[in-house]
Nucleic acid binder design. Structure first.
Lengths: 134, 134
DNA sequence: ATGGGTGCAAAGTGTTTGCAAGTAT
DNA sequence: ATACTTGCAAACACTTTGCACCCAT
């Protein structure tokens, strides 16, 4: 199962790398569409899956939809419950937790995923506007 | 919007509480079906959503599907990438991280969710069987 | 009594897949 | 040349919703 670098796959990879906001499959579809109006959603999904398997990009799961990330190292994410924005968190990945969790459960722990939830600064400002601090 | 405790809602709540394996909506549907063969999936979804809003149960998002949890305090989860099992992790919830993430990003952080991924003991044993250590 | 809740079935999302034709290697 | 990929559309799994009837308060 040798894998080929097709024009479409390259476009998908480029599109993920061109964004820093952890796009969803459909974001990628819309971006790639601009460069190749004939590409199909099936191709986007297939290629995202293949690129994740190959380790070229990473899969981030947040409430609402799957997102993709160009950063390959383990790291935590912020998720805005207001607008759905996703960004990297300024919190170090705690590898020793994987060992502790493994020791405590008997699991062969590969990694952990941490997502912080809350309102991003923009949504906070919007909330303050509509419901001012009386 | 006063909320009523109907027979169906009680059945859904009981079903979540009766399980310790973090059931999916469909698991609950199948369980409740045994006690009330006329309940519909729509009712299950509606009630799970309402119970989560009310804070009676908690929503856990893992790769594959949404799960529900009777434990209301913040805690981490283990997810088996082999069989999809979910269980509580023996790792303390680090509240100070929420503050650190908030300080570093300007988010109003509510909480974080951490999921450890790996193979559970049962899947590990199965894997060892089919691919013995030569 | 009355407005929230229910069952049912249809409609949505987001994602996957079968197939014949196209193309990277 | 060969078998991996593609576009398309149909199929899927999971979840939400519109509607008329029902029942907890």
């Amino acid at each position: 199962m040798a894998t080929r670098m097709t024009r479409q796959r390259q476009l998908v990879l480029d599109a993920v790398r061109a964004r820093c906001d952890h796009p969803s499959a459909d974001d990628i579809y819309l971006d790639v569409r601009q460069k190749d109006p004939r590409i199909s959603r099936g191709t986007i999904y297939r290629n995202l899956m293949i690129l994740v398997e190959q380790g070229a990009i990473v899969h981030v799961r947040v409430p609402a939809a799957d997102r993709y990330d160009l950063r390959l190292d383990f790291h935590c994410h912020m998720f805005c419950t207001g607008c759905g924005a996703v960004e990297d968190a300024p919190i170090p990945y705690q590898q020793e937790w994987d060992e502790r969790a493994a020791a405590g459960t008997g699991y062969a722990v590969t990694r952990h995923r941490t997502i912080f939830e809350g309102l991003c600064p923009a949504c906070l400002a919007k909330a303050a506007e509509s419901a001012p601090t009386n």
